[in-house]
């Protein structure tokens, strides 16, 4: 579904990504684990077309999207949830949901969103950033689900949230997975990653150093934590 081939990226002279090759299939949850500065965010920005100094290629559903501008990637089915949640303060909760265009038949309706996230329905007229951190994260995820995105890029969705909210987000990820959506999850929270993911990639200094299935990942959790310095 989403395929990344030999992706390298630079900031000026400094190379931030080194020939990363990875894939996310339909209905598959894949995490990218790595410490700060490992190149996780650079990778996501490359995928969204926001970082242009790169070589390699990005494919979505068999189509080369490497040179598409960001808005056409979103329309092709990439749904990005930013690490800061990316909620617009100048837009109400409902406007935040309605802003991105629908991109596929599997797009959620507003009713479905409000059924799944009652808190958003209650506060639909409120300013987007007046929500709590957890609610904003729900809104950010709901926003891409409403577009019918085929692949979700979730950048640290559990960061700074209470365990009960993190569990809820895990629930949403599983729901998305069941409906055939591919998920690339950027995480530092290894325990959370282990509860939702099928496979894991470890990123260190811009290089994908390991690729593990979830059983191996759980088995080697302590060793990996140490290796990553988390």
């Amino acid at each position: 579904m989403l395929e990344i081939e030999n992706l390298s990226a630079w900031y000026g002279e400094a190379q931030a990504l080194r020939e990363a090759t990875l894939s996310v299939g339909a209905g598959e949850v894949v995490t990218l684990v790595g410490r700060n500065g490992a190149g996780k965010t650079t990778l996501v920005r490359c995928l969204m077309g926001l970082h242009r100094h790169l070589t390699g290629s990005v494919w979505l559903d068999g189509r080369d999207i490497t040179s598409l501008p960001a808005h056409r990637r979103a329309r092709a089915g990439l749904g990005w949830v930013q690490d800061d949640r990316g909620i617009f303060a100048n837009l109400s909760v409902e406007e935040n949901l309605l802003l991105p265009p629908r991109v596929s038949e599997s797009a959620w309706t507003l009713e479905q969103v409000y059924d799944a996230f009652p808190a958003l329905g209650i506060r639909r007229r409120a300013g987007g950033t007046t929500l709590s951190g957890g609610e904003q994260q729900m809104l950010a995820v709901a926003r891409v689900l409403r577009t019918g995105a085929r692949v979700l890029l979730l950048d640290e969705p559990s960061e700074g949230l209470a365990p009960v909210i993190v569990a809820q987000i895990g629930e949403i990820v599983r729901t998305a997975k069941q409906s055939g959506i591919g998920v690339l999850l950027i995480e530092q929270n290894v325990r959370f990653a282990a509860t939702v993911a099928d496979r894991h990639y470890l990123l260190a200094q811009g290089r994908l150093v390991e690729s593990l299935d979830n059983d191996e990942f759980v088995e080697r959790q302590d060793e990996l934590l140490e290796h990553l310095g988390i």
Binding site: L50, H71, A74, F88, N90, L98
Partner: peptide, 20 residues
């Protein structure tokens, strides 16, 4: 709505599928 979003965070609006 699009103008408000593009004013606040043009890059993000683009990444959400808006042709700013």
């Amino acid at each position: 709505m699009i103008v408000r979003a593009a004013t606040e965070r043009p890059e993000l609006a683009g990444a959400l599928g808006i042709n700013v």
